[in-house]
């Protein structure tokens, strides 16, 4: 059996594959690097697969916390792993937009799923899941409710600040001027879409465009990015698990190479 672990900044994901590359265990926990999340998520995936740890032949770790996870056979970047995972479930994908807790990446794939080019956001929370977390807190709603709140907005309020910290002040200012909370929420989603499309414009975007990462769970954000990009965006059933899936596929490949 083959284990892929994706340790992100705000969540941990694990996927277990059998020798036929069939998924037999999977878990996601919303605690990431620097916590017991990786061990817990592996335990949950093993439990789901009905396996003990000894049954795992190869492990590949990916994600922001990959360097601190020492029990893997190999560590591979989340860029390569997301590309691998997406190509496996959606072979027509040519562009992957991966938006995690603190990083956003745009990855260009060729027909074989190889990474041709990639771009990452700079050291800044704008255009990442962290931005939406901050917005949810300011708007006093749960992160999972933010998308629904924005759906009820009619006219998205313009949030011009690039910086998440300044954007927070801007949102507070808009609310104090009497703007509807739904319109502010919509504005926040439009803002993240603009940052992401700014990133996309730095590489050659080729359809089919696929979105992954935690932000892909926010339907309003995906809709806004699609509108801004003027292209349809597909989403795998498990957008958060693509990195762990890719890591598990690499684990399987390495075992076959040996």
């Amino acid at each position: 059996m083959y284990l892929g672990v994706d340790i992100g900044s705000s969540s941990s994901k694990a996927v277990i594959l059998n020798q036929d590359a069939k998924k037999i265990g999977e878990a996601i926990l919303n605690i990431g690097t620097g916590s017991n999340g990786p061990q817990e998520v592996i335990g949950q995936a093993l439990f789901q697969a009905g396996l003990q740890r000894e049954a795992i032949r190869r492990t590949v770790v990916t994600g922001y916390g990959r360097m601190t996870f020492t029990s893997a056979d190999r560590q591979i970047t989340e860029i390569s792993c997301h590309a691998k995972g997406v190509h496996f479930v959606m072979p027509n994908a040519r562009t992957v937009i991966d938006i995690g807790g603190q990083d956003a990446k745009v990855i260009c794939l060729d027909q074989s799923g190889n990474v041709g080019n990639f771009i990452m956001n700079e050291k800044c929370a704008a255009g990442t899941g962290r931005f939406l977390e901050v917005m949810a807190r300011v708007l006093n709603c749960k992160l999972e409710d933010l998308s629904g709140l924005a759906d009820r907005g009619d006219n998205g309020v313009t949030i011009s600040s690039t910086c998440t910290v300044f954007a927070e002040s801007e949102v507070i200012s808009q609310l104090s001027m009497g703007q509807r909370i739904e319109d502010v929420a919509l504005g926040a989603h439009c803002s993240i879409a603009q940052r992401i499309v700014g990133l996309c414009n730095r590489v050659n975007i080729v359809p089919e465009v696929v979105i992954t990462g935690g932000v892909a769970l926010n339907r309003n954000a995906v809709h806004c990015i699609s509108e801004e990009l003027k292209l349809p965006i597909s989403r795998p059933d498990d957008p958060q698990g693509m990195g762990a899936l890719g890591a598990a596929l690499y684990a399987l490949e390495f075992d076959k190479e040996r």
Binding site: M67, I76, T77, I79, S80, D103, V115, G116, F118, M120
Partner: peptide
């Protein structure tokens, strides 16, 4: 010719994002 753009500062504390970019280039 593949080209990787990296933003550097002489006073960088965290190298993790940079590590991901460089490692990805090596992987591809």
């Amino acid at each position: 010719i593949p080209m990787l753009y990296v933003e550097l500062e002489q006073q960088m504390d965290s190298m993790e994002q940079l590590r991901t970019r460089i490692q990805t280039l090596a992987e591809i």
